[in-house]
């Protein structure tokens, strides 16, 4: 793996407060941006009890006007959304943020989600739905050419018919005519993230994602996962370099190992419990082993403490490589630009 390391920060529900305090999220976003993280990711499952699960896109939209550079990645379910609505939301967030939106797609439905939406979690059609969902999303994002909007005050021509495209999708799960009523996103296509932590998830990720989130207990495990992913990518006609691979790392960091252990309590593995130096060591060894293009860090405890303790060490070790002059998330991730099917 060559190129700069990608660094993401998972901002889950803070188990501490028991309330919803937007100021804390805003502060976390600003800290993450100052620490040169490439993106924030908002997961969608309940972190702890009492669960505080803010809706990811609403929260990221609010954070988009408080930040300038950090990517904003929402988790969303293909089982309980409609692709027209989700594409509209993501394209809007991309415009609002100047090209910093991303989406982590979950193809299945958790038990709780199924109950909330009246779905059957064992429905085998959910996988197929997920793939068709992505096809609709990409197609809708191609509704408008980049130059579809002359907005010519002199002639009165706002947009050009020949640069607008109906999707006319008719599949087993969705029928969508289009066009999307949002101009082409600055990134062309909002980058799709996906986890590869089960057989079904791996297949979806290998078919549809550009950033794959993996998590493994150790390097050997990680190598095996990486090989499996490469093989599955090949099955779907994609080169190994078509995706970026990030290792998800839950970390409880303390000034000493004891302090970290006390903080971690009964945190489930896999996860790293230790000092900032321990974290930096782990990240270095994974990087040097070539199994990851970067990391998605998930603080086991409070976010401010984590950043305050960990970032100086990570910066000292050259593990945080903030880049000036990169304006979109796609550029930060080192992904190729997304050409329209009509280009």
């Amino acid at each position: 793996m060559s190129g700069r390391m990608i660094l993401g920060l998972s901002v889950g529900g803070d188990p501490a407060a028991g309330g919803f305090d937007f100021d804390r999220y805003a502060a976390a976003a600003r800290l993450a941006e100052a620490a040169a993280f490439d993106f924030l990711l908002l997961p969608d499952q309940a972190a702890a009890q009492p669960a505080i699960r803010p809706e990811p896109l609403a929260l990221l939209a609010a954070l988009s006007v408080l930040t300038r550079q950090v990517g904003l990645v929402a988790t969303a379910s293909t089982a309980s959304s409609h692709p027209f609505n989700l594409t509209r939301s993501l394209a809007s967030l991309d415009h609002m943020s100047g090209g910093r939106a991303g989406v982590a797609l979950v193809p299945g439905a958790s038990t709780a989600e199924a109950r909330s939406f009246g779905l059957d979690p064992a429905d085998t059609g959910l996988q197929e739905r997920a793939e068709e969902f992505v096809a609709v999303m990409q197609g809708l994002q191609d509704s408008w050419d980049d130059d579809a909007f002359p907005r010519n005050k002199a002639t009165g021509q706002f947009w050009l018919r020949e640069r607008m495209h109906y999707l006319k999708h008719e599949g087993r799960h969705f029928k969508v005519r289009g066009p999307l009523d949002v101009a082409r996103p600055p990134q062309g296509h909002v980058p799709i993230f996906a986890a590869a932590d089960s057989e079904a998830a791996l297949d979806f990720a290998a078919r549809c994602a550009e950033v794959i989130l993996g998590g493994a207990a150790d390097l050997e495990n990680a190598r095996a996962q990486g090989a499996a992913l490469t093989a599955r990518l090949a099955d779907h006609g994609r080169a190994p370099q078509a995706v970026k691979r990030l290792t998800r790392l839950v970390a409880c960091i303390g000034r000493s190992r004891q302090e970290a252990e006390d903080q971690a309590g009964a945190m489930p593995p896999p996860g790293l419990v230790g000092t900032p130096a321990d974290l930096a060591d782990a990240m270095e060894s994974w990087r040097d082993a070539g199994v990851a293009d970067g990391f998605l860090l998930q603080p086991g405890g409070g976010l401010e403490e984590f950043l305050g303790l960990a970032m100086p060490e990570l910066q000292r070790r050259g593990l945080v490589q903030g880049e000036r002059g990169m304006s979109t998330l796609r550029q930060r991730l080192g992904l190729p630009s997304a050409a329209s099917r009509f280009a």
């Binding site: 939209a61 609010a62 949002v182």
Partner: peptide
């Protein structure tokens, strides 16, 4: 009315827009 060229939506500004719920979320922050 996108399919009806007589309605001249291509000469108007209001059809292409941001998701207003998310725009309001952004406004909420500031």
């Amino acid at each position: 009315n996108v399919t009806d060229e007589r309605i001249a939506r291509d000469k108007e500004h209001a059809q292409v827009k941001l998701d207003p719920v998310l725009a309001c979320a952004a406004l909420a922050a500031v």
